[in-house]
């Protein structure tokens, strides 16, 4: 079985997939990738199963080697990356030869970067998923010396692909739908919330991110005595002092702080990928408008597959062109006819 060796890793590097749905009543949130869209992008590029596990890197990557050549893709946050010193582009497939060194640096845009191998990471599943869930004690952060089994590349000769995803690293207007507690807030508080400009705080992780703003907090009458209730990722929770947190994949399942609304799943990757300091504003949708944005993972994957294009390398972009054997590949010209 091919192995992926971690030679170094940033502090937030974990194995993730699309998570573990169905355990909410036992207190275990779905978890999985903080930006699930990036997993679908990797699956579209590599022609692989979107349920496969990948490596998620929060803010900073690491150094990796494989003992068998495989196609790889980097999606999500834009991180500086190279194979044996030669820079590679994100949102494209690349061949990582056996023994070559893949170095992934810090995020230049976005927060959560993903490194996918064509055959997926095939660690032992726990409750039908390979996703690390740190707050639930499932899996752990990766560190130097870790070895992970990976699946064989099912289609090594598949032509390289590239994809130009929609920008989701610059914050902007985030759409919110009403939730069970939206009407616990006074209309004036809701109006103020929709007018306020927020900055993504440096405080944030896979559970949620804090938003900073000027002015007072957003509170409800009797907010601290409210009965705890079910949460979904995307919920915007107001803590005791009325500071908003947007909850992400690894959030708790029940919470007592009032929630003003819920970021629609389509826009949640923009929240996850907003680097500290990114400007964010919220726009309330009606329930009907929000429902109209619901897209299944299958639909999203098919749309991404259509966006993939074959990658043609322009010799102008190859920094070390002279290193390549450009002429010794000449043949007799009848290769295709020979058996």
């Amino acid at each position: 079985m091919p192995q992926l060796t971690v030679h170094s890793a940033g502090p937030g590097v974990t194995v993730q997939d699309l998570g573990r749905p169905g355990w909410k009543a036992q207190g275990l949130s779905t978890g999985g990738a903080a930006d699930p869209l990036a997993l679908l992008e990797a699956a579209a590029l590599l022609g692989s199963d979107p349920a496969q596990a990948v490596i998620e890197m929060m803010g900073f990557g690491g150094v990796f080697r494989l003992d068998a050549g495989t196609r790889i893709a980097l999606t999500g946050a834009k991180m500086q990356a190279d194979i044996d010193g030669e820079p590679i582009t994100p949102n494209a497939t690349h061949f990582l030869p056996a023994g070559a060194t893949l170095t992934i640096g810090g995020a230049k845009q976005g927060v959560f970067g993903y490194f996918a191998c064509a055959g997926g990471i095939i660690t032992k599943p726990v409750m039908d998923s390979r996703a690390t869930h740190l707050t639930a004690g499932i899996g752990k952060r990766l560190q130097a010396g870790d070895m992970l089994p990976i699946g064989e590349d099912p289609d090594r000769m598949r032509p390289p692909q590239k994809l130009t995803p929609e920008d989701r690293f610059s914050g902007g207007v985030i759409r919110v739908m009403p939730g069970p507690q939206t009407d616990f807030f006074a209309p004036a508080t809701l109006a103020l919330f929709a007018k306020t400009s927020f900055l993504r705080s440096p405080r944030g992780n896979r559970q949620g991110i804090r938003l900073d703003h000027e002015g007072g907090g957003f509170s409800t009458e009797g907010g601290l005595n409210q009965v705890s209730d079910l949460i979904v990722p995307g919920d915007i929770q107001m803590t005791g002092d009325g500071v908003p947190y947007v909850l992400l994949a690894e959030c708790q399942t029940i919470g007592g702080y009032p929630r003003i609304g819920s970021v629609i799943p389509r826009d949640l990757p923009k929240i996850a990928q907003a680097a500290p300091g990114t400007k964010i504003r919220f726009q309330f949708l009606t329930v009907e408008e929000a429902d109209a944005t619901a897209t299944s993972q299958g639909q999203t994957l098919r749309a991404l597959e259509k966006m993939c294009q074959p990658m043609v390398r322009d010799p102008h972009d190859i920094a070390d062109l002279l290193r390549y054997q450009l002429i010794s590949g000449a043949t007799r010209g009848d290769d295709l006819e020979r058996p």
């Binding site: 355990w23 036992q26 207190g27 601290l224 705890s228 079910l230 708790q252 399942t253 007592g256």
Partner: peptide, 22 residues
Amino acid sequence: AIGFAPGQPYLGMLPDHWDIPR
């Protein structure tokens, strides 16, 4: 109920005067 964290129980209810806020 069980929630917030895996397996964590919400136990109740205590008498009325335990209605103390967070």
